[in-house]
Nucleic acid binder design. Structure first.
Lengths: 339, 339
DNA sequence: CCTGCCGCTGAAAAGGATTTCACCCCTGAA
DNA sequence: TTCAGGGGTGAAATCCTTTTCAGCGGCAGG
């Protein structure tokens, strides 16, 4: 059993040159045109493909970048992944996706793989603010970009959206539409996005009604998934005085919220629903929902571009890019009485 | 700048043994307990993590498996990916995801990466039946499993669903519900799944009405995406005698079909819609749709298990595992007049 | 007491590419 | 004519780990 189909040695022998020259042909060293051509031909004839592992070992860097996301079943992240891929597409790098499943242990394993495989760069939407440890990668000099979520102490570039502002605008919109008892279903306590969206919600209520305006029984933490949204909304509906509107901090939870509302026989706009992030395949939902639109694709693209810059050796100071969200108003939040 | 934070040499020196012994400690060779322990301690103290690239180079095999899927934004494939991950979870292997985007060129690049990175195995849902070339991987002895879609000549294990049977059952159901002019929106011509589902549709019509029962103007090939479904349905609706029901060969196209129907002011069950594969977040759709349910998660799991067997050296003859689909009947196909 | 075997160990080779270094040869300037 | 410089080339080192191979020591059986 031969070890490798065809190595650089074989090509060198066939072309009558040294391995070093073959390497130079493939990596843009200076080689006489005639020789270069005969190497090309020999390589083509033998079907030579460089062994990427050997190359990575020697160069101390592979040509793969890792994108670690917390939920591969969430269209927000898959769209973000498309953005990353499209940006990487124009280079010779390949993107591989890792699904941490909101599990810091799985995430840790993937970070270890990225380090151990000497990946050229890592883009990560952190599963947790406190437990995600980007230290080893940074120490090793691997470029890292945090996207969407921020790990607490990480000294890395970041791309995210204006969560606080988006949450504020959303809540203000519900207030202006005439809803009075506005609840909030946000994500897990560990995530930066959960907390900032919630903070925006609080800020809007406080601005409108003064300090103490936030009734904490109207605030629920869930898990950023459909089931979590459903459970949280059921709880809210069973309160003595159920809310007449709800700000939901992510797209999937909004689906659960809508399910729970339908169960209870209530639908927008009788009850106001405002989602942070468009509901997937929004065209399926009637009436169509108002939502804070997130530039998921652009988030991925921006993160990839930042990463590529760093990989090119940019030494500019660490950046955080904040992309703007946009409130998309639709029929669903016309107001409690259609007002 | 040191090359590697800490190598096996450093550990060996610290523990007063040879690198070979350190390696044996980490790979289950025979080492006296006392020595093993001092190696463990030295490794822990120094924070040693083996260089996976060097290991892969030497072992001619990495500990990563690749899953190549054609559309990362399709929940069918992300659910399949979860199945693969969960099965791999129990081993020391990591799964990385590659999105070929139904593009045979991107797919080729990923297959090349998988080969070049000496991945331990590959699971692929082929972008094309004819152009996907698994030859090089097979030649190199890398275990490969085809999932969902079958490349034509590939000598590999496969896991798929009973597309033909599923298409037949679906179409028969529409017939039995009383629909007469049943159209079919299927996928691209190159894909095995498109063609077998279509063949099932033809078989059901032929069985019910005899040869020649299939009106080809009712058959449309689209691209397995929302837009494709929408466009195809618009065309069908503009026929002189539009269909009164449609069998749609995938989940995303069904969303497009529903959009087009709504545009035209028609909704189930006035027009019958039967989807091959559940519409994502089906709870959003009212009335709820009948569909051929696909065991996407199990598909991924079965593929991963087959792959793991091969990696363990199973030499049994090539297998094709066919999972059963199940027709889930719901309100939407009660019949043209609710009959 | 000798032989054979077995378990443990370390030196060294192997895996396949890139890169350094020294060298050769040729050109251009003094 | 001589020397400096530069472009092209190959031998060899390098990246880090695993694995082979040979050797050592101890124990059991003859």
């Amino acid at each position: 059993m031969r070890a490798q189909v065809v190595t650089i040695q074989d090509v060198a022998r066939a072309a009558g040159v040294s391995p070093a020259t073959v390497s130079r042909v493939f990596n843009g060293g200076s080689v006489t045109p005639a020789r270069a051509q005969s190497v090309q031909e020999a390589a083509a004839a033998l079907g030579f493909a460089p062994n990427r592992v050997a190359r990575s070992l020697r160069k101390q860097r592979s040509s793969v970048i890792a994108l670690i996301i917390p939920d591969i079943e969430n269209p927000f992240f898959t769209s973000l992944a498309r953005g990353v891929e499209d940006a990487a597409q124009r280079t010779s790098l390949s993107v591989v996706l890792c699904n941490s499943d909101e599990d810091t242990e799985k995430e840790r394993r993937y970070l270890e793989v990225a380090l151990g495989e000497q990946m050229a760069g890592v883009i990560v939407a952190a599963a947790s603010r406190d437990e995600t440890d980007l230290g080893p990668l940074a120490a090793r000099g691997v470029p890292v970009v945090a996207v969407d979520r921020r790990p607490r102490d990480a000294e890395v570039d970041a791309v995210r959206v204006d969560d606080h502002h988006g949450g504020e605008v959303a809540t203000r919109h519900l207030l202006q539409a005439g809803y009075r008892r506005i609840a909030c279903v946000t994500g897990p306590e560990g995530a930066s996005t959960s907390e900032e969206r919630l903070a925006g919600y609080r800020a809007a209520l406080t601005a409108a009604r003064g300090a103490g305006a936030v009734d904490d029984s109207y605030v629920r933490h869930a898990d950023f998934r459909v089931e979590g949204g459903r459970a949280a909304m059921r709880e809210l509906l069973s309160l003595p005085e159920p809310p007449d509107a709800v700000f939901v901090a992510n797209n999937l939870m909004t689906i659960g919220v809508l399910d729970a509302l339908r169960e209870a026989g209530r639908t927008p706009p009788g009850v106001g629903v405002l989602s942070f992030g468009d509901v997937p395949w929004a065209s399926l939902v009637r009436p169509s929902l108002s939502a804070v639109e997130l530039p998921s694709y652009e988030l991925g693209r921006a993160a990839a571009e930042l990463l590529l810059q760093r990989m090119d050796g940019s030494a500019s100071p660490l950046q955080t890019v904040v992309l703007r969200t946009r409130l998309q108003v639709r029929e669903s939040t016309g107001g409690p009485a259609g007002a």
